[in-house]
Amino acid sequence: MSEYSSGLIRMTTVAVPARGAVVLAKAGVTAALWTAVGAVVSTGGFLVSGGPGHAAGRGSAQRPGVLRALAASALLAPVCALTGLGLGALIRHSAATLVSSAFLPVTLPPIFSQSTRWSAAVSHAMPVTAGKRLVQTWTPDPDSLAYSATVPGSWTVYALWPLIAVALAVVVVRRRDV
């Protein structure tokens, strides 16, 4: 949200004093735009990679897990965008928001290995790790801690990250002076 650094947020809040409504409107537009972008990119990647005619006599879209992987790939974009929007409203500084948006979902998961249960649990709570599980079309080894990452749990991670980020942003901008 570069409005804070440029000062345009003052004009927005004068025009629409309900700051929470402004954040929710931005979240709606962001979700719609990035869902469309994610759908185009994931579908385009699937088609370019030879997806529909890949298997002889049976399209790869009919294989188990492929549609889930396409949906997960398409939805990763709005999950990250809405999380970034929430962080931007909370932090109010462009550089710090960019660093936080890159650090949280991308850099943080590899720090937490699959070697201990608590570390694996933290890793599974990250959107990138959840996305990896959702695009995985094979069952992981039952002896590994990666097996504990379930498909419903991964969808839950996809839902909670943007919901929590936007909800916190709405609460904070309602209470904070601009």
Rank of each mutant, 00 (worst) to 15 (best):
T13P: 01
A55F: 13
I111W: 12
V151P: 07
V37H: 04
V172N: 11
A125N: 06
V157E: 01
L163W: 04
G153Y: 00
S144C: 12
R68N: 12
T129Y: 00
V151D: 12
L24H: 05
T137K: 13
W161E: 00
T107D: 08
V172M: 11
T35L: 00
V178H: 08
T13N: 13
S113M: 10
V122I: 15
S148I: 09
D143Y: 12
G51R: 02
T35E: 01
D177S: 14
R10T: 13
S5A: 14
L104D: 09
A149M: 09
F46N: 01
Y147T: 00
W161T: 02
V151Q: 13
V99L: 08
S94A: 14
Y158K: 00
A31M: 06
A74E: 01
T12Y: 08
A18H: 11
G153L: 01
A89S: 14
A72V: 00
I164N: 07
R63N: 12
P17F: 09
P142N: 06
A21Y: 10
G45Q: 01
L75M: 10
L70C: 06
R92C: 01
W161K: 03
V37T: 07
G59I: 05
G59F: 01
S115K: 15
S123M: 14
D141V: 03
S101P: 04
P110S: 03
L104F: 14
W155V: 00
V16L: 10
A89C: 13
T107W: 10
I111P: 08
Q62E: 10
V128T: 15
A61Q: 14
T137W: 11
G57C: 06
S42C: 09
S144L: 14
T97G: 04
V66C: 04
R63V: 08
T129E: 03
A96F: 12
G131F: 11
G84D: 05
A96T: 10
V22D: 04
L98N: 15
S73P: 08
A25G: 11
A32K: 07
L67M: 13
T139Q: 11
A167C: 11
L145Q: 02
G38E: 02
P17S: 07
C80T: 12
V172K: 15
P78R: 04
L168Y: 06
R58Q: 13
R92T: 07
L85G: 03
T83S: 10
L8T: 14
V178G: 09
S49W: 09
T35M: 02
A149I: 06
I111S: 10
S60C: 09
G88W: 02
G44C: 08
P109K: 08
V99C: 00
L87P: 00
T13W: 15
S148E: 14
A81L: 03
G7V: 02
G44H: 06
I164D: 06
W161S: 01
T116H: 14
P78M: 00
L163V: 08
A61H: 13
R176W: 08
G65S: 05
R176E: 03
S60L: 12
P162C: 06
H54G: 13
R68S: 09
